[in-house]
Amino acid sequence: MKPGMPPPPPRSIGTPLLLLALLLLVVASFASLPLQWAAFFTPEAITSAGEFLAGFSPPEMAPAFLMKTLVALWETLAMSLVGTLLAVIGGLLLALPGSGRLGAPLRVPVRVLLNVLRSIPELVWAALLLVAAGLGPLAGTLALAAHTSGVLGRLFADALENTEPQPEAALRNNGAAPLAAFLYATLPQALPQMLSYSLYRWENNIRAAAVLGVVGAGGLGQMLKYHLSLFQMQSAATVVIAMLLLVAAVDAASFALRRALTR
């Protein structure tokens, strides 16, 4: 160490211990699971998988079935859009008290509520809401909104907490109202990140909406479950292709929107 230089900070052992604990957890996970890799690659398993996949060819291309699939595709897309929009509104409303902007006493209970909302998977929310809303896209839309509100509320709250407080404080010191100072100084700082989070969750909700149909929440998932249960593999193949095309289109649209927002 050179003369006059401050001594180096003491090294913390917390990070190495955490990495060691994660490594031990991974090793214990592999050791505790009965993973039969050899059985997976046996000739019998490969033959059975090949015969199963061959049943999906060729996909069902009848005009009436394609129109039915298109209607279900739109239903899945609409579920994801409406569910994400409701989640953005709910997440923003919960993010304000969750970030401590409406007083410290509200921060902890709202954070607990956000944890509960996002800890329950969409499938569980859908199963619960099907009892109240019945079969169909309403339950799926509300399930997406409930889970995603918890996710976006936490992300929005963190984004608001990480903004620079000086611009808003300067406006309020010069006589601006609290709401106006927040809208003109704090929100513009967090808005690009919040929009990016919302688009990313919309991508996830497309996939989730397709899966929610398995429990009766409508859309492509419900069609897929119906045809698979009847072993109508060619019809199921058409539904799977529609899912892939929808996810690819939404991914491309979301990527383009994020690129446009960051320019």
Rank of each mutant, 00 (worst) to 15 (best):
L191D: 08
R154Y: 02
F30E: 12
L160E: 02
A62G: 15
L123F: 10
R101Y: 11
G219I: 01
D251W: 08
A176N: 07
A170P: 03
T42W: 13
A87L: 07
V239H: 06
L66R: 15
A170R: 12
G216N: 08
P8M: 06
L106N: 04
L102K: 08
Q166E: 15
Q234M: 09
A104Q: 13
L130V: 11
E75K: 09
A210I: 04
V112Y: 08
L257W: 15
F231G: 04
N162Y: 04
T84A: 00
L155M: 03
W202K: 08
P58D: 10
F52K: 05
L70H: 11
G90E: 01
V211T: 11
L17G: 15
W74P: 11
E164A: 12
N174D: 04
N173A: 15
V88W: 02
R111M: 03
A104G: 12
A177F: 00
P59V: 04
S149D: 05
L230G: 12
P10I: 04
G219E: 04
A180S: 14
L257M: 15
H147F: 05
S235G: 03
A45Q: 13
W37F: 14
S198V: 05
I206E: 01
T262C: 11
V250H: 09
L102V: 06
V214F: 14
V131G: 03
L86I: 11
Q193C: 00
L113R: 01
A217E: 03
L33Y: 10
L113W: 02
E203L: 08
M233S: 11
F231I: 12
V27P: 10
L66C: 10
A157K: 01
E203R: 06
V71K: 05
P6F: 07
W37T: 14
P59M: 05
L24G: 14
T262A: 15
A72W: 09
